[in-house]
Simulated assay, not measured.
Amino acid sequence: MRIDPRVAGFLSQALSHEMSVVQQYLTQASLCDCWGLGEQCAYFRREAGEELEHAGQIIRHMLLLGLAPNATRLAPVRPGRDLAEMLALDRQLELEAVRLYDDALRYSQRGRDGASSQLFAALLADEQHHLAELDRLLAELAEKEKHHG
Score class of each variant (00 low, 15 high):
residue 1 M to K: 07
residue 1 M to Y: 08
residue 2 R to A: 15
residue 3 I to F: 06
residue 4 D to C: 12
residue 5 P to F: 11
residue 5 P to H: 12
residue 9 G to T: 05
residue 11 L to R: 11
residue 14 A to S: 11
residue 17 H to E: 03
residue 17 H to C: 01
residue 18 E to Y: 09
residue 19 M to R: 07
residue 22 V to Y: 02
residue 23 Q to F: 08
residue 24 Q to H: 06
residue 24 Q to C: 06
residue 25 Y to N: 00
residue 27 T to Y: 13
residue 28 Q to P: 11
residue 28 Q to K: 06
residue 28 Q to I: 07
residue 28 Q to Y: 10
residue 31 L to Q: 03
residue 31 L to C: 02
residue 32 C to S: 15
residue 32 C to K: 13
residue 34 C to M: 08
residue 34 C to T: 00
residue 35 W to L: 07
residue 35 W to F: 10
residue 35 W to E: 04
residue 35 W to H: 05
residue 38 G to V: 09
residue 40 Q to W: 02
residue 41 C to Q: 11
residue 42 A to T: 09
residue 42 A to L: 08
residue 43 Y to G: 00
residue 43 Y to W: 14
residue 44 F to T: 02
residue 47 E to Q: 05
residue 48 A to R: 06
residue 51 E to N: 01
residue 52 L to M: 14
residue 53 E to Y: 03
residue 54 H to Y: 02
residue 54 H to K: 01
residue 55 A to K: 02
residue 59 I to N: 05
residue 59 I to V: 13
residue 59 I to H: 05
residue 60 R to T: 08
residue 60 R to M: 02
residue 62 M to R: 10
residue 63 L to C: 14
residue 64 L to E: 15
residue 64 L to P: 00
residue 65 L to E: 11
residue 67 L to C: 10
residue 67 L to Y: 09
residue 68 A to W: 12
residue 68 A to L: 15
residue 70 N to R: 12
residue 70 N to L: 15
residue 70 N to E: 15
residue 70 N to K: 14
residue 71 A to K: 04
residue 72 T to V: 15
residue 72 T to R: 13
residue 74 L to F: 05
residue 74 L to I: 03
residue 75 A to D: 13
residue 78 R to A: 12
residue 78 R to V: 14
residue 79 P to R: 12
residue 79 P to H: 15
residue 80 G to A: 08
residue 80 G to S: 04
residue 80 G to L: 07
residue 81 R to G: 15
residue 82 D to G: 13
residue 82 D to T: 10
residue 83 L to V: 13
residue 83 L to N: 07
residue 83 L to G: 03
residue 83 L to E: 04
residue 84 A to G: 08
residue 85 E to L: 12
residue 85 E to H: 11
residue 86 M to C: 13
residue 86 M to G: 06
residue 87 L to V: 01
residue 88 A to M: 15
residue 88 A to V: 11
residue 89 L to Q: 12
residue 90 D to A: 08
residue 91 R to H: 14
residue 91 R to S: 12
residue 92 Q to H: 09
residue 93 L to S: 08
residue 93 L to T: 06
residue 94 E to T: 11
residue 96 E to N: 15
residue 98 V to Q: 02
residue 98 V to A: 07
residue 102 D to Y: 03
residue 103 D to T: 10
residue 105 L to R: 11
residue 106 R to Q: 07
residue 107 Y to F: 15
residue 107 Y to M: 13
residue 111 G to N: 09
residue 111 G to T: 08
residue 111 G to D: 10
residue 112 R to W: 07
residue 112 R to L: 09
residue 113 D to C: 00
residue 114 G to Y: 08
residue 115 A to M: 06
residue 119 L to N: 00
residue 119 L to E: 00
residue 121 A to N: 13
residue 121 A to G: 03
residue 122 A to M: 00
residue 122 A to I: 00
residue 124 L to R: 04
residue 125 A to Q: 10
residue 125 A to F: 10
residue 126 D to G: 03
residue 127 E to T: 00
residue 131 L to N: 04
residue 131 L to Q: 03
residue 132 A to W: 04
residue 132 A to N: 05
residue 132 A to L: 11
residue 132 A to Q: 07
residue 132 A to Y: 05
residue 133 E to C: 08
residue 134 L to K: 00
residue 134 L to N: 02
residue 134 L to Q: 04
residue 136 R to T: 03
residue 136 R to W: 11
residue 137 L to V: 01
residue 137 L to C: 01
residue 138 L to Y: 13
residue 138 L to G: 10
residue 141 L to K: 09
residue 141 L to M: 01
residue 142 A to V: 03
residue 142 A to R: 00
residue 145 E to D: 01
residue 147 H to L: 14
residue 149 G to W: 11
